[in-house]
Nucleic acid binder design. Structure first.
Ligand SMILES: [Mn+2]
Ligand SMILES: [Mn+2]
Ligand SMILES: [Zn+2]
Ligand SMILES: [Zn+2]
Lengths: 192, 192
DNA sequence: TCCTTATAGAAAACTATTATCCTATGAAAT
DNA sequence: ATTTCATAGGATAATAGTTTTCTATAAGGA
């Protein structure tokens, strides 16, 4: 039994346990969300599902995913750079993400625990930390190779709105803006 | 000379150096952005400025802030939970943020460098990290006190859309959803 | 099988943001 | 001083993801 199969069973059990109806549309959405390859967006889920459900409304996808989010069974990740929200139904708890700014692939890197960082923040500020989000933006190995070689070759991953060429800057800690889109200049940052 | 004064001078110098006109409206926006108390939104900047410029259009605020962002002089932070983008013109480079989920105050905590974390990710995945974003969500000391005491007392900070009561859960690493809004149930997360 | 009611689907409504249009401004050039 | 003309401000329209509203339908229990 694969991990996503177990996850699917769990999601089904949660819905049925709460007396929510398990419609064919919902089941299909659960299947996609339980796998969550590449952290799908509403639009992507919708496009996949209309193959099997040509009459499905995108509102249904919104409503089902929102329901899962409210049940704590899906993690919502907003990506304002591309103007969509993406969802992780395989790991519904906060965890770091690694995003390639060129081909837009999204990974769940296995970093160390963020607990020490969180505890430092709590100690120094008096906050009680409840949640967090860490996103690392950069170039995946494939896109790095493509970068130095021919400047051509289209991106690997699926839907790309338009030209997402990046500004070619490297940095360790103080780096390009959060939305490394098509900014005009090299953005010469300075630390205080 | 305060830190924000120095920052204002810098912003003015940048605009003038690039041969952008330093209009009264822009100067007023620069002043607010250079201070960046609480990481203002476009709407908040607009509301402050229309006291001095009753005829100002919100489009002007959008255009000026966007210009500063493209010049790398302002950090844009999208907060989908409240449906707005906020701006930090005092520290235009990526840095962690601490957000109170109740009163919505936003702080720049002084944590250690994220460089080791970033390098770990780079080593393990082959990515070239260019940028990052770390947000910690929780309860500020004031709101913690208000929490255990009377369940009443309105939030301290400015605009709050509606009831942002939180689910009262504590956690260190695996915590409530990223948007700890008015979710229905306690969200019983499980790690794999 | 029947009944109750949550849900699907279609479309309108919403809203932060962006683009467009036009006029005003102001820094040169004459 | 006058003309020029690119830039900027103000008003408004357009965009797009998301939410809401309404009604017919079908899930699931009796
Ligand atoms: Mn993930
Ligand atoms: Mn900040
Ligand atoms: Zn890539
Ligand atoms: Zn607070």
């Amino acid at each position: 039994m694969s991990s996503s199969d177990a996850r699917l069973s769990h999601l089904m059990a949660v819905l049925q346990g709460r007396r929510f109806r398990l419609t064919p549309q919902r089941l299909a959405i659960l299947r996609l969300v339980a796998r969550s390859d590449g952290h799908p967006s509403i639009e992507e889920i919708y496009e996949h599902l209309r193959e099997d459900f040509p009459t499905m409304s995108i509102a249904t996808v919104y409503k089902t995913v929102t329901l899962l989010k409210e049940l704590g069974e899906v993690l919502e990740l907003s990506f304002p750079e591309e103007g969509v929200k993406r969802y992780d139904g395989a790991k519904p708890y906060p965890h770091p993400h690694l995003i390639c700014v060129r081909c837009r692939k999204i990974l769940d890197p296995d970093l160390g625990s963020l607990t020490p960082l969180v505890e430092t923040a709590a100690r120094r500020t008096g906050f009680r930390i409840l949640s967090h989000r860490l996103d690392l933006y950069g170039l995946c190995p494939e896109c790095q190779a493509r970068e130095q070689g021919g400047e051509d070759a289209p991106p690997a991953h699926g839907t790309e709105t338009d030209g997402n060429r990046l500004p070619i800057r490297l940095s360790g800690d103080c780096a390009p803006p959060h939305a490394p889109g098509d900014g005009a200049e090299p953005t010469p940052w300075r630390r205080p």
